[in-house]
Computed example of a mutant assay.
Amino acid sequence: MVKIEPFKVEQWMDRYETTPGVINVAETCAASVSIDELVDMCEDKSAPSPLSLSKKLTYGAILGSEPLRQCVASLFDRASPTPLPAENVVITQGAISANFLLFYSLVGPGDHVICVYPTYQQLYAVPESLGAEVTLWKLKEENGNIPDANELEDLVKPNTKMIVINNPNNPTGSTTPKSVLEVIVAFAKSRGIIILSDEVYSPLYHSLPAGKEAPPSILTLGYEKTVATGSMSKAFALAGLRLGWVASRDKSILHAIAAARDYTTISVSQLDDQVASYALSEKVLPSLLKRNTELAKTNLALLSAFVDKYSSVCSWVKPTAGTTALIQFREKGVPVNDPEFIVDLVNKTKVLVMPGSTCFGQGQDFKGYVRLGYVCHTDVLKQGLEQLEGYVHEYLL
């Protein structure tokens, strides 16, 4: 029987996010929007509704509708000399399904996987559950939580099948720049290693240092055996659609994923497909991304002011992208017991964050750290920080 490790962050979220009155600053999606709000964002007020109520609800196009696949393909064209064809996109039920299908199709006993760490637990737990050996590629705060590509030489093995990165990174909010991506690609290409880039928080590169450009997708860097996954949940504020994608320039990889998906979901909901196509259309997408980028900048400034004010008890590497931050809290100079801390916090203040050592660490890694999702509605973040400030004054200072 396959051994599946408990998905800790999801279990912690399930346990507490429905607590009555909870102030949820653990959520990692940009504050969700409704279909009505999408319609308001559309530049063409005469455009058809996002939903066709007369369309028969068959399985629809098995790999995703042509309009949606074209919209997703267009997302990868930023800084790309070669546009990605729509046929190189497979629509899935969320990025979580895209990632799972990729591992299920390509990784098994006898394979070795290198995965950045910390990251979303799925990215290293699933290949391990399938019998692969996984080596964690540890990010370092002193390096801005950016992967050190020079370390790959010591991590690689003769049987390394895949390198897994996450850009922007969850939970740190760091950005892996193009220069580092190029080194990773060159390393993998010389050895025929597949690269999976989970780009579910792209393109929310909202707070890069002055003069720094947002990195391109891994698919734009001239190596066929690269794979990118994403979804409507995080950067596009539509988690309720449960719609994502996997894209690659390697048709054999896509065929393997499509074949595996025949045993799972077959296709996605036509309703989800229609709404996603509308949201990613050229008449809606610019307004949607502008709204989410401005929200991220506004809220990160609020969170940064809090961390600066209470630097005696909390510290971080300030995020440059995405929606999450990893913050360490201390009491009398000692890192707090973060699982106990977040339970006490939610019980006393209703503020919900996630424990870093439990959900993103192994052993003593990330002791005292919490992951906070700051791209919620601004009033929710303000309320959460106000309650957290009171807690800090009473229990940590």
Rank of each mutant, 00 (worst) to 15 (best):
Q328Y: 04
F329Y: 13
F329T: 02
R330M: 11
R330P: 12
E331M: 10
G333H: 00
V334M: 10
P335K: 03
V336C: 08
V336N: 07
N337K: 10
N337C: 07
D338S: 09
D338M: 04
D338P: 02
D338E: 05
P339C: 11
P339N: 12
P339E: 13
P339G: 08
F341S: 11
I342H: 07
V343R: 10
V343K: 10
V343N: 11
D344I: 07
D344N: 14
L345P: 00
L345A: 04
L345Y: 08
L345H: 06
V346D: 08
V346K: 05
N347Y: 04
K348Q: 13
T349I: 03
T349N: 08
T349W: 00
T349E: 12
K350P: 04
V351D: 00
V351H: 03
L352K: 09
V353Q: 11
V353E: 05
M354S: 15
P355T: 04
P355A: 14
G356F: 01
S357K: 08
S357H: 01
S357V: 06
S357R: 00
T358D: 04
T358E: 07
C359H: 13
C359G: 13
F360M: 14
F360R: 15
F360E: 15
Q362H: 15
Q362V: 01
Q362N: 14
G363N: 12
G363K: 02
G363L: 02
G363D: 10
Q364M: 03
Q364H: 03
Q364E: 13
D365S: 10
D365V: 02
D365Y: 05
D365N: 12
F366E: 14
K367W: 00
K367S: 15
K367P: 02
G368L: 10
Y369K: 07
Y369D: 08
Y369R: 02
Y369H: 15
V370A: 13
R371I: 00
L372H: 11
G373F: 00
G373M: 02
G373W: 02
Y374W: 13
Y374A: 08
Y374L: 08
Y374S: 09
C376A: 12
C376R: 11
H377T: 05
H377I: 04
T378M: 06
D379M: 09
D379Y: 15
D379I: 04
D379Q: 13
D379N: 12
V380Q: 07
L381S: 07
L381C: 09
L381I: 07
L381Q: 00
K382W: 06
K382V: 11
K382Q: 14
Q383L: 09
Q383E: 11
Q383T: 10
G384S: 06
G384D: 05
G384H: 06
L385A: 03
L385W: 03
L385R: 08
L385D: 01
E386R: 02
Q387A: 15
L388G: 05
L388I: 03
L388C: 06
L388M: 09
